[in-house]
Amino acid sequence: MSQAEVEATTKDEFVIKEKAPLRPVQSPTDLCLGCGTCSAGCPMTGVEGFDPRRIVRMVLTGLDRELIDSKLPWLCTMCAKCEYACPMGINIVNLVRTARSMVERSRVPGQIHKGVEMALKTGNNLGLPTEDFVFIVEDVAEEMAEEEGFSDFRIQLDKKGAGLLHTLHNKLVNTQNEDLVHWWKIFHLAGEDFTIPRENWEGVNWGLFSGDNEAMKTLVGRIVEHMDRLEIKNLMYPE
């Protein structure tokens, strides 16, 4: 969404209510009973004015701008305990995510949007160059091959016709290298013919968190491209 579009849509009231998808339940937000079951179950209730019922009331009374400009959408973990318990099936998580999507991108807190931008630009949230990525995974694989039972283990990136595509969470090639090997050990002993993409290997899609459907679609599309290009049988849904 362009800056102009963001401004145009967020000047209005009752926009979140109209825009938020009625999922998982076809239940309009107006059906809220105000019972507070959502708030009673939420571990964040009471923190800096946060509570799920208040978010629903803000949406229903047209206080979209106040909600969007506040910290509230970013304190929610979108865990859905509130809507799971809601007697009317109000889709509270989608209200939060829609509010997040209407926040000007430069004001999205922390690393969420920065990671999305980096992934769109470089193929992973870290901005790690391909040669560094290849070095890290091959280095960890060689080390693993020194362990008993795994001596013939090799990593094959971009292997055409592989049985399984494995994407990686960026933290595993960043600060948690030691956790790369768990799946590889399982694959090796199971005789799984797996491969990892050489580029665009990111298995994480922070568009989900930032409320950015366009970015999310692009990142999912890259996985589809790998599967088609390399003619891979099965996708392992990113961890």
């Binding site: 571990p43 964040m44 923190v47 800096e48 910290k71 970013w74 304190l75 929610c76 973990t77 979108m78 865990c79 305990k81 799971y84 318990a85 939060v96 807190p109 922390g110 690393q111 969420i112 990671g115 922070w206 989900l208 968190f209 930032s210």
Partner: peptide, 28 residues
């Protein structure tokens, strides 16, 4: 199962600067 408590780091909150809030959330 369905009624579990979230770890407190979901929905990208782990990527926000709101650490004190995350600690509070996790107490459950």
């Amino acid at each position: 199962r369905g009624n579990q408590y979230c770890c407190g780091g979901g929905g990208g909150t782990l990527l926000t600067p709101y650490k004190q809030e995350r600690i509070h959330y996790s107490r459950k």
